[in-house]
Amino acid sequence: MNNGKPLLSVRGLTTEFTTPEGKIARALEDVSFDVMPGQTIGLVGESGSGKTTTLMSLMRLLPAGGRITAGKVMFNDTNLLALSEREMRDYRWKSMAIVFQGAMNALNPVMKVGDQIHEAIMLHNLMDEDAAEKRVKDLLEMVGIARTRRDQYPHQYSGGMRQRAMIAMALACAPDLLFADEPTTALDVMIQAQVLQLLREIQKSLGLAIVLVTHDLGVVAEVCDSVVVMYGGKVAEYGTADHIYNEAQHPYTQKLLEAFPDVSKPGDTLASIPGTPPRLTNLPPGCRFEPRCHLKIEKCSQVNPPLLEVSPKHYVSCILREGAEADL
């Protein structure tokens, strides 16, 4: 792991939602991790684990009813949570851009793709019209779309090309940090491989840091340097990709890996995790994974486990593991 200063440092991020019935749902609790410059970090989890909420909290784009109740998000030396909405707007897209899930819906169907990228550039007054126009075409080329297709509409693009166009749009203002929310989920395996390859290439050439949110452990293994495994709104395990995939300590991570079918080992049995992820409005009092855990002891249902550092830079939130309480 890079020992330099992190580009983005998230500490104790806690986000809550108020449901229309007035219930409080704790969507995130005490989420901490670092993003190093030029590094790819994966946020992995199932639906409801809080991975997308983490992204939205970092961008401060939470939907109505959601609010950040505690924590710090340091981008370089600025606490993003302390900024006014106006100042925050300056950070969005210029410093940190996002590729949304479902490229099908994130593009305006009645606007030319090139115009949409052009708009993203002009909104931030970075350059004049002509320079912006040149940049649009450069960006398209960078993501592997012919310059001649600038004037086409989204429906003339295939699914993979739309995702590429979304990436081009995110790169429009040359951000330092790219958030990618399930960028390959709706795509075929081959297109998925192409998009991942593209992300790797632009990361190498632009030195971007990428936060990749996905449910797919395979995708994470292919591209990420470090991984945050989330469960029920908390960090279950956080470490380098090698820690997570080869020395997993949290029972959830272990089971999840066993549940992932591996094409290189046909005929293997798949582990399954009984039960379903917890409802955020009705969280168990102790460890969130306790009801589904195969290793649970009595204490698990009473104590909300702290994040422990089991080996350098490898953090696990499970009372069965040994380590000093994490200094995050």
Partner: peptide
């Protein structure tokens, strides 16, 4: 062969040579 090579393998130690077909179907 290409399909198998791009199937994600959940282990970063096993990042393999991948045959990524260009273009789309």
């Amino acid at each position: 062969k290409a399909l198998i090579s791009v199937a994600p393998v959940p282990n970063p130690r096993l990042r393999r040579e991948r045959v990524i077909l260009q273009g789309e179907t």
